[in-house]
């Protein structure tokens, strides 16, 4: 039990996908201008990423490995992710108009989030089991949402600050992300297990 807990905490804080592993930067930079969009994107990504890690584990273990098709991993995972995104979109559209309003516009963007493809591939390279894969996926997704929301909050404040002209916009955002990443390096001390 403790092992799972540490795996989860490690995925959220110590090995944060965005700030330590450097995955999923496009949405991190792209949709972090407003706090509300950050919440929406975080929720949508969490949902899809958790589902994608589970699905890709099943495909890898019951389809690719038995038939010796490991070299098709990248191809089959990206197709799976695209299908999951499409499916989620359809299910949400049919069942919950409210959720669709919140998540709708973010879902198509998730297909090109490298964290969604990267985390399943990391799972395989660490040869995690099914539960471990799911937890690592969920933890990474929570970590992604956490830093996305934090970053959006900081950016809203930075927008009002007097920044040297050449640094306005993307450049200061990068430097801010660097400082956040520096702060997250501090969590590395937790990783003793």
């Amino acid at each position: 039990m403790a092992h799972y807990l540490f795996l989860l905490i490690g995925a959220v804080l110590v090995n944060n996908v965005v700030l330590v592993k450097i995955l999923g930067l496009c949405p991190f930079m792209g949709v972090s201008k407003k706090l509300e969009t950050a919440y929406g994107m975080g929720a949508a990504t969490t949902f899809v990423l958790t589902l994608a890690t589970g699905a890709s584990f099943i495909i890898d273990h019951y389809l690719l490995i038995p038939f010796g098709l490991e070299y098709l991993r990248t191809l089959s995972f990206i197709v799976t992710i695209a299908a999951i995104v499409q499916l989620t979109e359809m299910v949400i559209a049919k069942t919950s108009p409210m959720l669709q309003q919140v998540l709708g516009i973010y879902l198509p963007l998730i297909t090109t989030n490298c964290a969604v493809l990267g985390v399943p591939l990391i799972n395989i390279s660490h040869s995690y089991g099914f539960m471990e894969s799911l937890l690592f996926g969920a933890g990474s997704a929570i970590g992604f949402s956490l830093v996305l929301v934090l970053f959006a909050g900081i950016r809203e404040r930075v927008d009002g600050a007097e920044v040297p002209l050449p640094f306005k916009g993307a450049a200061i955002a990068m430097v801010t992300a660097g400082l956040m990443s520096l702060a997250f390096m501090g969590f590395a001390g937790l990783d003793r297990y």
Binding site: L19, I22, I172, M174, V175, G178, S181
Partner: peptide
């Protein structure tokens, strides 16, 4: 380390501008 990557890119973006 990752913080260096963010900082260098930030300064390069400002430099290009």
């Amino acid at each position: 380390l990752p913080p260096g990557a963010f900082a260098v890119l930030g300064f390069l973006l400002a430099g290009k501008r």
